[in-house]
Design a protein around this nucleic acid. Sequence first.
DNA 1: CTAGGAACTGGAGCGGACTCCAGCGCAAGT
DNA 2: ACTTGCGCTGGAGTCCGCTCCAGTTCCTAG
Lengths: 146, 146
Amino acid sequence: MVRVTASPSTRGVVGIREVSERTGLSIDTLRWYERQGLVPDVRRGTDGRRRYSTYALGFVQLVQVLRRTGMPVARVREFVQLGGGELAHHAPRIALLEQHAACIEKLVAQLQADHATVQNEIAHYRDLIARGEDCTDEPAEQDGRG
Amino acid sequence: MVRVTASPSTRGVVGIREVSERTGLSIDTLRWYERQGLVPDVRRGTDGRRRYSTYALGFVQLVQVLRRTGMPVARVREFVQLGGGELAHHAPRIALLEQHAACIEKLVAQLQADHATVQNEIAHYRDLIARGEDCTDEPAEQDGRG
DNA sequence: CTAGGAACTGGAGCGGACTCCAGCGCAAGT
DNA sequence: ACTTGCGCTGGAGTCCGCTCCAGTTCCTAG
């Protein structure tokens, strides 16, 4: 017993369980990602089990970032399929990532504006309470132009 | 003809079309939101059509913000159901909004970190191109602890 | 009166992203 | 040999958030 489950990262090749633990993605999700073609270079051991190379693990982490930032699975797949690490593919990959970076920036900006709106709304309720009122009118919107 | 479709906002009561145009939410979505109990105070004209009060319109906009920032519909509903603008409900509404504001902050932080990762990745590919290499190893991840 | 256009309703359908499951195989422990 | 546990596979199921549709009812213009 005491199987070395915790860190069989001997020479940077790990099983699906460890990838799951390191990334927080469920094992099912990892398998699903692979089927969807989001993770290259997942080899198998003689027993047929997945062995994630350091490269694959890193890739999973990148995919996680892309997904988390709202890139659709289909688009992640596109990115991955510019694959094989060939020099010729670097440029389109960069293009794709740059586009996405721009998306993220917009997201952040929107989120920050929305955060402000929520804060505003909070202030509005605080104000109502302070003056003991039930409700004046509309939620405290600050802009009028859409 | 030349029906005054553009701005029948006479005295702050508007039809669903205008709400749609102002918010960017589809008419179907607006109706669906209403069925889901996300929008209070949508009255009907004698012809049975929806008339959004200024309050209702403002509320739609707030709902939009909440949804956009990742609040699930069910939770928006909770918020709305603390309704009627009664003083007693202000406090729990504030609590809910503050919680959500905290969520947004985390989201923003995560998003910014992820943006950095993507930029990093771009730099990585740039570097590879610069030195004419196909691919070294893993995607340029910067942290190792999950 | 007729035609057209906009909204209404209830309900079905859809796309995305997982999540769960049954049934099987291997490898190690007892 | 047998049991236990992890992993594998293909496919079905689920959840969320809309989106679409058929059929009907107005209202207004011609």
